[in-house]
Write a protein that binds this DNA or RNA. Structure first.
Length: 229
DNA sequence: GCCAACGTTGGC
DNA sequence: GCCAACGTTGGC
């Protein structure tokens, strides 16, 4: 099982040495863009952590993948939630992530945590269901596979650059939560305050693996049993 | 270490 | 298919 996630990131992205290692530094950086500095983690405003010196510890995630066929170098990138559900044990590895920020978030994931399966680059983008992290970050083998779309010639086995986690399908959302609906809440909350005002899906739109605070996660879950906005 | 050029993401 | 946003690269 080696689902082909779209896992956007630039495949040939190199990086600067500092981004490469220095996990903690990078994770701070990623929440804030170019500003690193201790203050950054506070600025990131993503709580859940209490310590001033350690980066915020998230425990909920949103991971994007494309549910519709799209060919890249002759390979179909399609991997929707139904595809995950169809794998043995409904479990697969989230390979192909080639973006440092997304990678670093995956490295922060802990076994048992929940992640929304988000359908991107399709007719109606949105949150389709929920999955569980069943294996914490380990080496993404596709970086060494020349035939893989996400092959990275610069990464060496003795010092792998990319990681992946294993995820297991948990359940579908009671109803599909579209991006457009989430956006309405986001705009509303941004104007008057509310749980989704800083949601990464909008503030860091292009990140394929992103964190959610407990408040954000719970709010999205609460939408399931309500009428679409 | 700045920043312009370039490439990718992904909604529309 | 367009293109804005933004991450990455590489010249200086």
């Amino acid at each position: 099982m080696s689902p082909k996630k779209r896992a956007r990131g630039s495949k040939s992205t190199e990086h600067s040495a500092k981004d490469d290692e220095g996990e903690t530094v990078s994770s701070v950086k990623e929440t804030v863009g170019r500003k690193r500095k201790a203050a950054a983690s506070v600025e990131a405003g993503k709580k859940e952590s209490t310590e001033s010196s350690s980066p915020p510890q998230y425990c909920h995630w949103l991971m994007k993948s494309e549910p519709e066929s799209r060919f890249e170098n002759g390979i179909d990138m399609k991997f929707g939630i139904e595809d995950l559900k169809g794998l043995p044990n409904q479990t697969g590895c989230w390979d192909g992530v080639r973006n440092y920020q997304a990678r670093n978030f995956m490295r922060q994931m802990k076994e048992g945590q929940l992640a929304f399966f988000y359908h991107s680059n399709c007719k109606e983008p949105g949150i389709a269901g929920i999955m569980t992290i069943v294996k914490e970050a380990y080496v993404d083998h596709t970086q060494f596979d020349k035939k893989d779309v996400h092959y990275d010639a610069k990464s060496k086995p003795d010092n792998p650059k990319w990681s992946m986690v294993d995820v297991q399908y948990q359940r579908m959302m009671n109803r599909y939560i579209s991006l457009s609906e989430l956006k309405k809440y986001h705009l509303q909350h941004r104007a008057k305050g509310g749980p989704l005002k800083d949601m990464a899906l909008f503030t860091r739109a292009r990140l394929s693996v992103q964190p959610l605070t407990s408040v954000e996660f719970d709010f999205v879950l609460s939408l399931e049993d309500q009428e679409a906005l």
